[in-house]
Design a protein around this nucleic acid. Structure first.
Length: 201
DNA sequence: AATTTGCCCAACCGCAGACTC
DNA sequence: GGAGTCTGCGGTTGGGCAAAT
């Protein structure tokens, strides 16, 4: 039987710790030190498993635990460390004096992950707007060429100056994103006024 | 005022690696 | 060397509370 199996519902008290339990636990740890948690739990006379005692000590009773809100500086550090280390909460906590891995994990899951999602969403919108602007410029060039063609002479010439192959070839030169057909359809989806303009000519 | 919803955080769970005998 | 036990970690749950309805 493993220690994990011992730490189950039927093996004792669960739920929030009382002040009395905290005192008992702290007293035993003062004498014995924060190790051999099974023995600590037994000596403290608590109806809890060693694992639960360890967690309570690490996240609450341990000295030098910093309470209160996470500062902007700490948040910035968490963001940078998470980018570097991923969900290695204990490593991240190790770089933030007085903060526990559990606290940082909770902070991340409840706040920072949402912030990041929101930021990603904003970036996506920004990217679409930039694409829109670029595509608009490109369309402007095409229309200029169309106008030049029509003003120069007959309709056949103008048709020749605006043939499809030429259009796709010329626009592809600077294209690093989706295909022309893709951006064209995106453009049309994004801006009904463009569609109307193209339809009118 | 009562109920519902959403958020925060302490605590629990399961797993894997380290340690002990 | 291997079985049993301990420890530490990250993911998940659920209770308490405040805001919204």
């Amino acid at each position: 039987m493993t220690s994990t199996q011992l730490c189950t519902k039927r093996d004792g008290n669960r739920g929030a710790w009382t002040a009395e339990e905290d005192q008992k636990l702290a007293r035993v740890i003062e004498i014995q030190g924060p190790k051999r948690w099974k023995i600590v739990a037994a000596k403290a006379g608590l109806n809890r498993c060693g694992k639960s005692c360890r967690l309570r000590w690490m996240n609450y009773l341990r000295p030098n635990i910093k309470r209160g809100n996470i500062s902007d500086q700490e948040e910035d550090l968490i963001l940078r460390l998470h980018k570097l280390l991923g969900n290695r909460w204990s490593l991240i906590a190790g770089r933030l004096p007085g903060r526990t891995d559990n606290e940082i994990k909770n902070y991340w899951n409840s706040r920072l992950s949402k912030k990041i999602k929101q930021k990603e969403k904003q970036n996506k919108i920004l990217r679409v707007q930039i694409d829109h602007q670029n595509n608009g410029k490109r369309m402007g060039n095409i229309l200029n060429r169309w106008e030049e063609g029509t003003s120069k002479g007959n309709h056949e010439n103008s048709k020749a100056s605006f043939n499809g192959d030429d259009f796709f070839n010329s626009s592809r030169e600077e294209d690093q994103g989706p295909s022309d057909l893709e951006w064209m359809s995106k453009l049309l989806e994004m801006d009904a006024s463009w569609f109307k303009f193209l339809h009118d000519i």
